[in-house]
Simulated scan of single mutants.
Amino acid sequence: MIRVVLADDEPVVRFGVKAVLATARDIEVVAEAENGSEAVDLVARHRPDVAVLDIRMPRLDGLDAAGHIRERHPDTKTLVLTTFADDAYISRALGEGAAGFVLKTGDPQEIIAGVRAVATGAAYLSPLVARRVVDQLSRAHPRPAATQRIAALTAREREVLGLVGAGLSNAEIAARIHVVEGTVKVYVSTILRQLGVRNRVQAAIIAHESGIIPS
């Protein structure tokens, strides 16, 4: 069972997200928070697998909360609920270690997919958010820059990076390329080091920018 702490300052949104997650038999919302500070406290109390955080919340916003959770409770992964109006927060969210982005107004099933993905250690970008993120980052870092960054990777490492960008977990990647999961972990660690990024989401962004996501 994937245990979730859900944080959003809008009761209607909280109710809706909780109702969506309740349709998944393998997901349980163990606590709800109205602000980021409360979310951090609830994570400390319940030690969930995933914290689903709205970006804009009082007292402590979702990105600061994600940073605190990453530092204090690294076993809890964070999934950020975002809107198209939140572009300015994207780079900051990546820096705070968010494992995924899901659009509030997108397909409700993406929330379930995002929770499942980040719970297994994978990065997750809902398709619309991924395109928005790539468009924004490409204005500052054009596509050729991303292509140059992956040039030093081996063909196998580029294949693994593409699968990371597609949201696959280490176990799923291992099954896809017919190696053991430990080998994938080594590949991912090498890729992060070679690209100079801190987490799988940042690596996934580069995969999207460079156009290597498998179809």
Rank of each mutant, 00 (worst) to 15 (best):
D26Q: 00
A155T: 11
H141W: 15
I206G: 04
I55T: 09
A130T: 01
Q194T: 12
R131P: 01
R143C: 01
A7N: 05
E110R: 09
R139P: 10
A44F: 14
D75Q: 14
K77T: 09
V102G: 02
H68D: 02
V102N: 01
L195R: 05
P11T: 10
R59S: 12
E28T: 05
I191V: 07
E96D: 13
E71V: 08
T105N: 13
V188L: 12
I206L: 08
I191H: 03
Y124G: 00
G196Y: 10
V118S: 03
R25A: 14
H73G: 00
T120S: 09
A203L: 11
T76F: 05
Y89R: 03
G182T: 13
V115S: 04
G165M: 06
E10G: 08
L153W: 02
E38R: 10
P74S: 01
R70C: 04
S215E: 15
T82C: 00
D75M: 14
R92F: 03
L125H: 00
E209M: 12
I69D: 04
L168M: 09
V179R: 12
G100A: 08
A88R: 11
Q202C: 11
I205S: 04
V118N: 01
T120L: 06
R158D: 00
A22Y: 13
G165I: 04
A146I: 05
A152D: 15
L161P: 02
I212S: 11
R198M: 12
A155L: 15
E96F: 15
V180N: 12
R116G: 00
L6P: 06
K185C: 14
A66S: 06
T154H: 06
R139N: 14
V133T: 07
R45C: 10
S169L: 04
L6W: 07
E28Y: 03
T120W: 00
A174T: 13
E172C: 00
D26A: 03
I213V: 10
G106V: 07
A166Y: 01
A117D: 01
I212H: 11
V43K: 04
A65T: 08
R158C: 07
D9W: 06
Y124R: 00
R158G: 06
G95R: 03
A171H: 11
P144A: 06
L63E: 00
A145C: 09
N35K: 09
R3L: 15
V17C: 04
I213E: 11
S169F: 00
A140H: 12
V179N: 12
A171L: 12
Q202D: 09
V186E: 14
L63Y: 03
E157D: 15
L6T: 09
A88D: 12
H73F: 15
A24Q: 07
R131L: 14
A24N: 10
S169D: 00
V102E: 03
V184N: 02
V40I: 14
G16S: 08
A31S: 15
K104S: 10
P11S: 08
